[in-house]
């Protein structure tokens, strides 16, 4: 199986409350925050790796995992890290953030799909900076492929995957035939969430994503990393234009109460919610 995985780096999501908006509202300033892989994209890579191995011998890929990311030269750090974790090949699409929105990214990936011909494209369900949750679904439409968005479980069958999607009110199970687009949710990295056709059904992964061992980090430097220009893939311009940014309304810490009776008194007589 050949899988294309899209990766994005984001400003450290665990410190997202430290982003600043200048008084003129011209930007979201993430100065001082480290770049981290978008957590859902890490889960997408883990899903792709699990689908191309038998669980026991994780160094042997049954097929190929190609990772792609968009941005300036230094996003290669994100790609190298994915190569060290187990991806076979990487593509960086040279561009700046200002050239992109969800549709532009989806158009460019669609063009890469034409050349790469993967069985699956796996993406995180959303990037936790823009929080848009859109590229996978747009891409599926552009390709006229089925989409299984918000996947929590993935089981490979012959030429298809059986996907449990976390939706409102429960889990919807769908079968999508290759080629298809998957976007993954948080619980896809649970120990029994993803099985390739060759994984023993009794096998359990460790919770979460795998980390690259040190020798793999060295070897990753030798794995192929190609660069393409955004303009060679698509001439589209963003349709979404931000005119200003604002800080969220501030919320003050209230008071601590001594016990349950004091809490009830406040809820009744001050907040008047009981």
């Amino acid at each position: 199986m050949k899988i294309l995985v899209a990766l994005k780096r984001v400003a450290d999501p665990d410190n997202a409350n430290k982003v600043k908006i200048p008084a003129d509202g011209s930007k979201i300033d993430t100065t001082g925050l480290e770049w981290k892989p978008n957590p859902f994209d890490d889960y997408a890579l883990e899903t792709a790796l699990r689908l191309t191995e038998d669980g026991k011998t994780t160094k042997v890929r049954k097929g190929e995992v190609v990772v792609v990311s968009f941005g300036p030269k230094d996003v290669e750090t994100t790609l190298r890290s994915a190569l060290a974790t187990g991806a076979d090949r990487a593509i960086r699409v040279e561009c700046t953030d200002e050239q992109l929105d969800g549709l532009v990214v989806a158009k460019a990936i669609a063009k890469l799909v034409e050349a790469e011909k993967p069985d699956l494209v796996v993406l995180g369900k959303q990037a936790v900076d823009g929080d848009s949750n859109q590229v996978g679904q747009i891409l599926a439409e552009l390709l006229d492929w089925p989409q299984a968005a918000f996947a929590a479980t993935v089981r490979e069958e012959a030429g298809a995957v059986l996907v449990g999607r976390e939706v409102d009110g429960g889990v919807l199970e769908v079968r999508v035939k290759f080629p298809a687009v998957l976007t993954v949710d948080l619980r896809v990295v649970a120990p029994t969430s993803v099985y390739s056709a060759s994984t023993d059904k009794a096998f359990k992964y460790n919770e979460g994503v795998r980390f690259a061992p040190l020798p793999a980090i060295m070897q990753a430097r030798k794995k192929p990393l190609d660069t393409k220009n955004l303009s060679d893939l698509t001439a589209e311009k963003p349709r979404i234009r931000y005119v200003k940014y604002e800080a969220p309304p501030a919320r003050k810490a209230g008071s601590k109460v001594a016990d349950v009776d004091a809490l009830l008194d406040k809820l009744k007589n001050e907040a008047k919610v009981i």
């Binding site: 400003a11 999501p13 997202a16 409350n17 982003v19 908006i21 979201i28 936790v128 900076d129 929080d131 931000y242 005119v243 200003k244 940014y245 604002e246 800080a247 969220p248």
Partner: peptide
């Protein structure tokens, strides 16, 4: 950014 900024 998890509700830490709003864009218009």
């Amino acid at each position: 950014y998890a509700g830490n900024a709003f864009g218009v």
